[in-house]
Lab assay of single mutants.
Amino acid sequence: EFTQISGYVNAFGSQRGSVLTVKVENDEGWTLVEEDFDRADYGSDPEFVAEVSSYLKRNGGIKDLTKVL
């Protein structure tokens, strides 16, 4: 089950073990991109978060400006 990723309007994530599946949706709710990120592939949590965040930004993730990150 996908849940909204904090700080984004149209990005959602689903966690299974160490694998986080993220997706970005358009205004109609269609999935634009979907990608798996395995936490085990990264040396640290900040590196993992930075990679996921960068992916979302590159692929149309819209920041939720009503929330302070």
Rank of each mutant, 00 (worst) to 15 (best):
Y42G: 00
D38Y: 04
D27C: 15
R39T: 02
K63C: 14
D38K: 03
R39W: 07
P46A: 15
L65V: 11
F2P: 05
L69Y: 08
L65T: 13
D45H: 08
S6K: 11
F2A: 04
L56G: 00
Y55T: 02
G43W: 07
G7Q: 04
L32M: 12
G43I: 09
T66D: 11
D64I: 09
V19W: 03
A50I: 07
N10M: 03
S18V: 03
F37G: 01
F37I: 01
I62P: 01
I62W: 04
G60H: 05
Y42F: 11
T31S: 07
D64T: 10
D45T: 09
R16G: 02
K67F: 13
G29V: 03
N10S: 03
V52A: 01
G17Y: 05
E1I: 12
Q15F: 15
E28P: 04
N59E: 05
Y42A: 00
I5C: 12
Q4E: 07
G61C: 15
R58D: 11
G13C: 15
L65H: 10
F12E: 01
V52R: 00
V22L: 04
A11P: 01
S54L: 09
S18A: 04
D27V: 10
K67W: 10
L69K: 13
D38F: 03
G29T: 02
D64Y: 08
D45Q: 06
G13I: 13
V33A: 14
D41F: 08
G17Q: 02
A11I: 03
V24Y: 02
A50R: 09
L56C: 07
L69W: 06
F37P: 01
F2L: 05
A40H: 08
G17P: 00
G13A: 13
D27L: 13
Q15I: 13
R16L: 07
G60K: 03
G43K: 11
N26K: 04
L32C: 08
F2G: 05
Q4W: 07
A50H: 09
K67S: 12
G13E: 07
D45C: 15
I62Q: 07
S6C: 15
T3E: 08
S54K: 13
V33T: 08
F12V: 06
G60V: 01
G13Y: 13
V52G: 02
V9I: 11
F2C: 09
R16W: 07
V52S: 00
I62D: 02
L65A: 09
D41A: 09
I5V: 05
K57W: 08
F48T: 01
D27E: 14
T21G: 01
G29E: 02
V68W: 12
V24L: 08
L20F: 09
G7N: 05
G7R: 04
I62N: 03
S6E: 13
E34K: 11
L32R: 05
D27F: 09
E35N: 10
S6A: 13
E47I: 06
V52P: 01
N59G: 02
D64L: 07
S54G: 11
Y55H: 05
L65Q: 09
K57R: 09
L20Q: 00
D38H: 03
E34R: 10
P46G: 14
L69E: 14
S54V: 06
V22M: 00
W30S: 10
T31A: 07
T66Y: 09
K57A: 14
E1R: 12
G60E: 02
V68C: 15
Y55S: 04
V19P: 00
G61M: 06
Y42T: 00
Y8W: 15
D64M: 09
L69M: 11
Q4C: 15
V52L: 10
S6M: 11
L20G: 00
Y8S: 06
S44W: 03
N59M: 11
L20W: 07
N26E: 01
K23E: 01
L20Y: 08
W30P: 03
R58L: 12
A40V: 07
N26F: 06
N59R: 02
K23W: 13
K57E: 15
T31C: 10
E35M: 14
G7I: 06
W30E: 14
E47F: 03
E35Q: 14
E34F: 09
F2D: 04
V68F: 11
T3V: 12
R16M: 06
A50L: 09
G61L: 08
E35P: 01
E51S: 12
G13N: 02
V9S: 08
R39E: 02
S53N: 14
A11N: 01
E28K: 11
T66W: 11
F48R: 01
E47H: 05
T66R: 09
Q15Y: 14
P46H: 15
T66H: 10
V9A: 07
V22N: 00
G43L: 10
V52E: 03
A40D: 09
T3Q: 10
G61P: 03
G17M: 02
N10L: 03
S54T: 08
D38R: 03
S53E: 15
D45L: 12
S44P: 01
E47Q: 07
G13D: 01
V68I: 11
A11Q: 01
V24T: 02
G13Q: 13
V19F: 02
E28R: 10
P46R: 14
V49R: 13
S53H: 15
G7T: 03
S14K: 14
V24A: 00
E25G: 05
F37N: 00
F12Q: 04
R58I: 09
L69A: 14
E1F: 11
P46N: 14
V49N: 13
A40R: 12
E28C: 15
T21Q: 03
D36P: 05
L56M: 00
E25Y: 15
P46V: 15
E25S: 12
G60L: 04
F48D: 01
Y55M: 07
L32H: 06
L56E: 02
G17H: 02
F37V: 00
A11H: 01
E1V: 11
K63D: 06
G29H: 05
Q4P: 12
A40E: 09
V49T: 08
D36I: 12
E28F: 11
L56A: 00
N26D: 10
A11F: 03
V24H: 01
V9P: 03
G43E: 10
K67N: 11
T21H: 11
L32F: 07
K57V: 10
F48N: 00
A40W: 07
F48Y: 06
A50G: 05
T66Q: 10
A11R: 00
P46E: 15
E25D: 05
K57N: 14
I5Q: 03
K23S: 06
S18Q: 06
G43S: 11
Q15L: 14
V49H: 14
E47R: 03
E28V: 10
T31Y: 06
T66K: 12
N59F: 10
R58F: 08
P46M: 15
L32W: 08
Y8H: 06
N59H: 12
D36W: 08
A40N: 13
T66N: 11
K57Q: 14
K67I: 12
S14A: 12
D64E: 10
S44E: 03
E34L: 10
D27R: 10
Q15A: 08
K67P: 13
E1T: 11
E51N: 08
D45R: 06
G43D: 11
G61Y: 05
R39H: 03
T3N: 08
N59C: 12
V49E: 14
E28M: 11
S14V: 13
I5W: 05
D64R: 08
D41M: 10
V33C: 14
G60S: 04
G17W: 04
T21E: 01
